Amino acid sequence: MKSHLQKTDHELIHLFMDGEMDALECLVVRHKDKLYTSILFLVKDKYLAEDIFQDVLIKIIDTIRSGRYTEEGKFLPWAMRIAHNLCVDHFRKVKRTPSIKTGTDQQDIFDVLNFTEESADVKIMKRQSHDRVRRLLDLLPEDQKEVIILRHYAELSFKEIASLTNCSINTALGRMRYGLINLRKMMIEKSIAL
């Protein structure tokens, strides 16, 4: 695996296609943080993000093994597009799923019941400033929030963001600009310092 660390994504993909499993492991380790963080910010649930991340890996492996991977030199944007599409698919599926309502106040039963308790490591990892940014991001319009997440957490270029979100580069830049302006305004209004 050490010899694979200096190889490009393209080289690692070809090594994996030739049967070297270490090449795939190196590729996954190289990009897992960006992929997982982007998924987590979109779905806002650690366990769901882990499930979707696994689905992304399965789809990547299946596509490469079948010889359908064609975006040479652009592995991360391609993988991010898969992750984004799987998140969108999840939300579409959730919209179609009927919800179970409680008696009088008509709340969704799964919003009322608490099935899991956060583990100690999750509590430790949540720093105050990280939580503040996440709360502020949640207050932004979806299109602005998505661009900020893809730019700052997934480190995608505006060209890649535009392709992923099916908009022009200027629209992506505008969403980023207005998103940052709105974040600054909210920080001033709420007297929040990071």
Rank of each mutant, 00 (worst) to 15 (best):
I13M: 06
L48Q: 13
K32D: 07
D18G: 07
T37S: 06
L40D: 03
L35R: 01
L27R: 04
D55Q: 14
D55F: 14
L15D: 03
V56N: 14
H31N: 06
S38N: 06
L12Q: 05
E20G: 00
F41L: 10
E11H: 05
K46H: 08
D18L: 04
V56P: 14
Y36L: 09
V28D: 01
D51T: 15
A49M: 02
K32N: 08
Q54P: 15
L40A: 13
A49E: 03
F53V: 14
L40V: 03
A23D: 04
K32T: 08
Q54G: 15
D9I: 15
L48R: 14
S38R: 00
A23W: 11
Y47W: 08
K46M: 04
L42A: 13
A49W: 00
L42P: 00
S38M: 12
H14I: 01
I52R: 10
A23Q: 06
V29D: 05
H31M: 03
C26A: 03
D45L: 11
F41D: 01
L40I: 03
K44A: 08
D22E: 11
L24V: 05
V29A: 01
M17L: 09
R30C: 06
F53E: 07
G19L: 06
R30S: 06
M17C: 08
H10Y: 09
H31W: 03
L40Y: 06
L57F: 13
L42F: 10
D9Y: 13
T37F: 01
H10T: 14
A23P: 06
Q54F: 13
D33E: 11
L40E: 07
L48N: 11
D9N: 15
D9L: 14
I52P: 15
F16T: 05
R30G: 11
D9K: 14
C26V: 01
D45M: 12
D33W: 12
G19M: 08
H10D: 15
L24Y: 10
Y36P: 10
K32Q: 12
Y36T: 12
D45E: 11
F53C: 07
D45Q: 13
K46A: 08
M17S: 09
I39A: 00
D18S: 10
Y47P: 09
T37H: 01
V29R: 05
D51E: 14
D45A: 13
K44T: 03
I52H: 11
S38P: 00
L48T: 15
Q54S: 15
L12P: 04
V43R: 09
E25F: 04
G19A: 08
L24S: 03
V43F: 04
L15P: 00
E11I: 12
L27N: 07
G19P: 04
V28I: 06
K34L: 08
H10E: 15
A23G: 01
V43Y: 05
A23H: 09
I52C: 12
V28R: 02
H10K: 07
D22I: 00
M21R: 08
L40S: 09
F41K: 02
L57H: 13
E20T: 01
H31G: 10
V29E: 07
M21K: 09
D33L: 07
